[in-house]
Design a binder for these strands. Structure first.
Lengths: 341, 341
DNA sequence: CCTGTTAGGGAAAACGTTGTACGTTGATCG
DNA sequence: CGATCAACGTACAACGTTTTCCCTAACAGG
């Protein structure tokens, strides 16, 4: 049903080879202006569209980059995905997006599909905790370049990430300087390096200030507003004496804010709150949120850049490289006055 | 480099055809248990992955559904995308996602790629205003089924949408019953049917109540919090006497809230606010937002279902069908007491 | 007139699958 | 003992490209 080179060739009275050459305008090949025109017009007339499968099969490369994210309802994951997608398309490649959250085994399936579709490279936007060495092994052995935006335990990949430890440190240091000593912490799934790092930053800040960490002020929360809300409720029910809360991300923080305010606490007077990510939403939170800003665009760009370096024919760097970008503290109103004031 | 049927055949000492048959376990074919085992083990050993391009080329169908959205930073678009992706994968098909926002001409490119990659169907999650008849023509002529989740002007497609007119009506009717007469309106780009419908609902409610619409209370805003904020500022600077605002979506509403509160207005005492979409964020807004809830899951499911009906070999329904799902009013706190109280 | 060159174009072989149309065996049966 | 028939495999032709290698004019130089 679809129009092929053969159809054009027949209609234009030339060979398939000629059509192919014209349509790709193959360099160093001489095709008469008359035939060239003829072919082009016929192709347009018939509504020809190149068949990518045939092309890929013949060429042995797809000019396709796989993009995988575990949960795109997490806003930062989506923003990274979008930035990466754009950067890749700007380089003339296409993208294949896998949203793993769709099903449990979706991530493994995605890896298989990645190979099956002959993707030239893979960008792990946000690997899940289930993504292990064994799962990645076949892919890596097949020699396709993989760059990740969050470390995968036990696998030594090219990695362009954000230094969440610094992020956690900045947040807690800010709170301590403001005089807080009892700082609750709504943290994420500690199986993830990205979540553990924040915790490390928390601890480091306390240690540096000669303070002791009290883990009874720690609560775990899943993604999203509601989970932050629940975690805050849990914190309240424990009756802890926290004067501040550091949240794993802005959505958690905004959710938590509601719980605290429902309990009659004023922010920042009775309780200081710090988020993480600097989403647009954080600026429009009930109380504008002091938070940690991640360089999402830069991270995505660097990751894509690295991937394309690996794609370069001559490129040969056996040892994966590791980049960790620094986040920044963004001060708004949820912690009260400026620390240095 | 990748492992092919040929490699397995050589290693297992059988023909390519046999390998293919075993691996697909082709029905009505007798292959000895011994050879079968041999083939399977060798395939596993070598880490064979089916080449989808070769398969698609041979079969003439890709078992791939295209998913296109103009701007996935709009949360509802993302949620639809995700729901559709899941539904499609549950049916054993794969998806190809195009995030058009990446570039200006991205949507047209996506349509071309859709044909080039032999997608068996296309789901327009959120077509942009630039998507015209001419752009869609080649695709439609090629005979691939297209289902849209928002009407495309001038094109008669299968469409599963949400009745935003009813949504707008519900919102405004609610406000009028609460006694509001001067209702400002932060609306979206009226080139879109989805945005115009809300306006129609607004007008209908006013008309039914025998009231007159004052369009000086209308302001346009783009997507996101910040644009809502700006629109509200504009409204304030006009010095209008509105006692309520209906917003095109929840993000706009939350952004607007901030502007109003900064201006010293209390919500809902001085100003009632209604949003649209019922995002998780709306529940955690500075003042929990009264809003219109869209049946996103249901819509996505129905759209996918329709698409697969079209894919059915025997199916023949020349006239596209049109489904419009009703949204619902969700009452929270941003408008004060219950209307019927 | 012969030779060499060059522009213009074509034939055909891959790429990795799938499916049809054929072989080959043995064993069974009339 | 020849025919029949499962049971088990194989050969080969597609699918739509790209690309290498070749052919044919035409024409210039000698």
């Amino acid at each position: 049903m679809p129009v092929t080179l053969k159809d054009i060739a027949r209609e234009a009275g030339v060979s398939i080879a000629t059509v192919s050459k014209v349509l790709r305008d193959e360099p160093e090949t001489f095709i008469g202006a008359r035939t060239r025109d003829k072919v082009v017009t016929v192709a347009r007339q018939l509504g020809y569209r190149q068949n990518l499968h045939a092309r890929t099969l013949r060429l042995g490369k797809s000019e396709l980059i796989g993009l995988m994210a575990y949960d795109v309802t997490t806003r930062v994951a989506l923003l990274r995905l979008q930035a990466a997608d754009r950067a890749i398309r700007e380089r003339g490649y296409r993208t294949a997006v896998w949203i793993a959250a769709a099903r449990q085994d979706a991530e493994l399936r995605a890896l298989e599909e990645c190979q099956s579709s002959m993707a030239d490279g893979l960008l792990l936007i946000q690997p899940s905790a289930e993504l292990t060495v064994e799962a990645l092994k076949p892919l890596l052995e097949s020699g396709i370049p993989v760059v990740t935006m969050a470390q995968v335990p036990g696998v030594d990949l090219d990695c362009v990430t954000v230094d969440r430890k610094v992020g956690g440190y900045l947040a807690i240091d800010h709170l301590i300087r403001l005089g807080h000593r009892r700082i609750a912490y709504i943290h994420g799934d500690q199986r993830y390096e990205t979540d553990r790092s924040r915790t490390e930053g928390y601890v480091q800040a306390f240690t540096e200030h000669g303070l002791e960490v009290d883990r009874t002020l720690f609560v775990e929360a899943g993604a999203g507003y509601r989970n932050g809300y629940r975690a805050a409720q849990e914190l309240l029910s424990r009756g802890g004496d926290q004067t501040a809360v550091f949240c794993n991300n802005d959505e958690n923080a905004i959710g938590a804010m509601r719980a605290f305010r429902e309990a009659g606490l004023r922010i920042p007077e009775d309780l200081a709150v710090v988020g993480f990510d600097n989403l647009e939403a954080s600026e429009f939170a009930p109380v504008p949120l002091t938070t940690i800003s991640q360089p999402i665009e830069e991270q995505s760009h660097l990751a894509v850049e690295r991937l394309f370096q690996r794609l370069e024919p001559g490129f040969d760097a056996p040892e994966p490289h590791f980049v960790s970008l620094p986040p920044q503290l963004v001060i708004r109103e949820s912690c009260g006055g400026n620390a240095d004031a």
